[in-house]
């Protein structure tokens, strides 16, 4: 489990993606190592969500290559479902399954995809619910939960697959301010446990606490990258300086 070999979890090379004529990603290259926490920041429309979503192929790229956990995911012969089993994703809009209880939200993919027994899946699910602090809501339907609780369910649901990599797509942007803390707390805990994470967020406090590297994107390109401290104290690019002034 040591990182001395610095195994690459994600290796993106020359990734380009168009939406119609809009160049959402413009020749982006980015490596994320095992156990690393990378935070992506940037103005809306800068391509950061698209970059994240291309890592588990929710967006198909037009050029370049993406290798995740050793699999070349743009190769049509690679079974993307196998790769996705190992890559958890948390969405801005939570996307919990409203027709399933909290517990069923966590067990569904374990049983259907991982082929675990119901009992084993429930055991894992209950442990994770304890971890995110909503054990008492196990048999409740998620529509009865607050946004913060729903997002914690969504995180636990992704973790139930025991992924090697977690993607967070603005996980706190749809939350009321008083609920942001409880979600970030779970994410910090996860980071401290050594999970490899790519997080699109504007929460610079979170970035400062856990990020190994911060990446600033604009116009579909990576304009600047460095430690959180670098971004707080001496961002070099003019666009970065402007952006940091706006969000801090």
């Amino acid at each position: 489990m040591q990182n001395d070999t610095r195994r690459k979890m994600v290796e993106m090379t020359g990734v380009t993606k168009f939406f119609g004529t809009l160049r959402a990603l413009d020749d982006v290259s980015l490596d994320v190592y095992d156990g690393e926490k990378v935070v992506i920041i940037g103005p809306s429309g800068s391509g950061k969500s698209t970059l994240l979503r291309s890592v588990n192929k929710l967006e198909e790229i037009n050029a370049g290559s993406i290798v995740v956990d050793g699999y070349q995911i743009n190769d049509p012969k690679v079974n993307i479902n196998k790769v996705r089993e190992e890559v958890g994703m948390v969405f801005q809009q939570f996307n919990v399954f409203p027709h399933k209880t909290v517990l069923e939200n966590l067990t569904l993919a374990q049983v259907v995809v991982r082929k675990r027994s119901k009992k084993e899946a429930e055991q894992i699910a209950m442990d994770l619910l304890a971890k995110v602090g909503i054990t008492e809501k196990a048999n409740v339907y998620p529509t009865k939960l607050s946004g913060g609780q729903q997002q914690r369910v969504a995180i636990a649901r992704a973790l139930a697959m025991q992924p090697k990599l977690m993607l967070f797509d603005e996980p706190t942007s749809a939350l009321d301010p008083e609920m942001i803390g409880e979600v970030l707390e779970v994410m910090v805990k996860l980071a401290k446990e050594g999970m490899t994470m790519i997080v699109v967020t504007h929460e610079m406090g979170f970035a400062r606490e856990v990020a190994d590297r911060v990446i600033f994107m604009d116009y579909g390109k990576i304009l600047e990258e460095g430690s959180p401290e670098h971004f707080f104290t001496s961002p070099t690019h003019e666009r970065t300086q402007q952006f940091m002034r706006q969000i801090l």
């Binding site: 479902n81 196998k82 809009q93 993919a109 992704a158």
Partner: peptide, 15 residues
């Protein structure tokens, strides 16, 4: 059904 539901399911590795 919102698109996010299918995305969530697919991102968990479902076919």
């Amino acid at each position: 059904i919102p698109k996010g539901q299918a995305e969530a399911a697919r991102s968990l590795g479902m076919t």
